[in-house]
């Protein structure tokens, strides 16, 4: 795909209400290809709902989501892989009972064509797909230093590694856009650096990364653009430095006496 076609993610005018509760109000943002765009905001700002609308787990009341200019069908999570949009989850979502290799291969399968019938008789295409999926999964695991874990059951891995497997599975989809829902949640501080490198690596490969994150240190260190959500609206956006200085952000996100709160979020 040529660079001109790689526009990344575009969200326009997305609104969502649950009963009388307006969770998202006219949210518009972009996560351009090859860069990291962060979405921050206090609890209840609508970050998770936004992630769910983008990835099709929640149907929005209004607004559109585009990947590389193509509109994604609202509320169709299963169709996202075909549009090369991948996501991770706030709570670890891996395929237990399956090896690390096969967990990652699941990502690779998403971009393959093949019939169920072909799989039943193990036809040539099935074999080819299988080989290709496992080879690309193995290559990715090698790249992320998880090769020695390839044949372990995913539930036998420490939390941090399992989180990484989830991310590698998304990369196996060869995504254009990746939505990361709180990737640092539950990780020990020591894992923050490797995580930052992993995310930065995604952007370097031309993926449009939308990073939804609580960990301000992580957000400020790797994001090019920060969007602040508050009560379902885009409060402000800009470079990390700009956003950090914005008094409205300090008010809304960090609250009064922010120096103390900021420490807590680090």
């Amino acid at each position: 795909m040529s660079t001109s076609e790689r526009q990344g993610l575009r969200v326009t005018g997305v609104s969502k209400a649950y009963g009388g509760l307006q969770v998202l109000k006219d949210v518009t943002l972009r996560a351009p290809a090859g860069s990291i765009t962060a979405v921050i905001g206090p609890n209840g700002a609508g970050k998770s709902t936004l992630a769910n609308v983008i990835s099709g787990f929640v149907t929005q009341d209004a607004g559109q989501v585009f990947v590389n200019g193509a509109e994604l069908p609202a509320g169709k999570a299963v169709a996202r892989a075909g549009h090369r949009l991948g996501r991770t989850f706030q709570n670890l979502e891996v395929f237990t009972g399956m090896t690390v290799l096969h967990n990652v291969a699941m990502g690779a399968y998403s971009r393959q064509k093949g019939s169920h019938l072909g799989d039943l008789i193990r036809g040539p295409r099935t074999r080819r797909n299988e080989r290709e999926a496992e080879e690309s999964a193995r290559a990715l695991l090698r790249k992320f230093g998880l090769e020695h874990r390839a044949d372990s059951l995913v539930e036998s891995l420490p939390f941090g590694e399992a989180k990484l497997v989830e991310m590698v599975r998304v990369l196996a989809m060869e995504p254009e856009v990746v939505v990361l829902d709180e990737p640092a949640a539950g990780l020990p501080p020591a894992s923050a650096m490797p995580l930052a490198e992993t995310i930065a690596g995604m952007a370097q490969e031309g993926i449009g990364v939308l990073l939804i994150e609580h960990n301000m240190k992580l957000v400020m260190s790797i994001s090019e653009h920060v969007v602040v959500l508050d009560q379902g609206r885009v409060l402000t956006e800009g470079s990390p430095a700009e956003v950090q200085k914005d008094p409205r952000v300090i008010e809304a996100y960090l609250g009064p006496g922010h120096a103390k709160s900021e420490e807590l979020t680090l």
Binding site: F57, F89, T96, H102, A105, T126
Partner: peptide, 30 residues
Amino acid sequence: VAHNLLVSRTGRALRAYGASEPAALAAGAS
């Protein structure tokens, strides 16, 4: 035939769906 299915992407997707519904959906398994 059952073994073929079990080790194929179809069988894995089926099991993946039982293990993590959201992740399987996000990986495009219907």
